[in-house]
Amino acid sequence: MTGSTLPPLYPFRESPSQTAGPYVHIGLTPNVCGITGVYAADLGATMVSATTKGQRITLEGRIIDGSGAPLKDALVEIWQADADGVYHARATEAFCGWARSAADPDTGVFRFETVKPGRVPFPDGRLQAPHINVWIVARGINLGLNTRIYFADEAEANEADPVLGRIEHRDRVATLIASGDGQTYCHDIHLQGPQETVFFDI
């Protein structure tokens, strides 16, 4: 682009990002921060119901800054396939693949009650390992961060996962894998430092 006198090929550029700031919860989870009566319920609070197919899991974790402290003002959104590996844009009675969680103002813990996702295809037909797509915004984060969460008890699928395969420094793959007992999975996301989580340019 630099130095070119040709007109741009595309008429517009993406709106530049700005931080979500310290009060993101007013906009996205107002009931959590005490603004009640505007929306009956916060969006993205519930993913599963009595009719949801699949293995119920609780996913929880914290976002840790470069000093080792958890972010208490972050907001995390996830997007995932159902237990059969199918993405549903429209939530159904049985399952909503999208959710958001405000970090706890005292502990910084985010939490999702969901099901373990099935495997979804990579463009070349191979299957990706079960994973949850994660987007993180907060004060001090200028552009939302994209990462993924995989599962420690899917070692074989993880080994063959085409996205994990893109990670050149193999010791970093572990930063994307949540450990758990089949019911509760814990996963801290490190913004900096020796355990810095892999973030993606998608």
Partner: peptide, 13 residues
Amino acid sequence: SVLRSPARPLVAF
């Protein structure tokens, strides 16, 4: 942003 910015390159796919 100083303590909240990833330092390592993003992984693209």
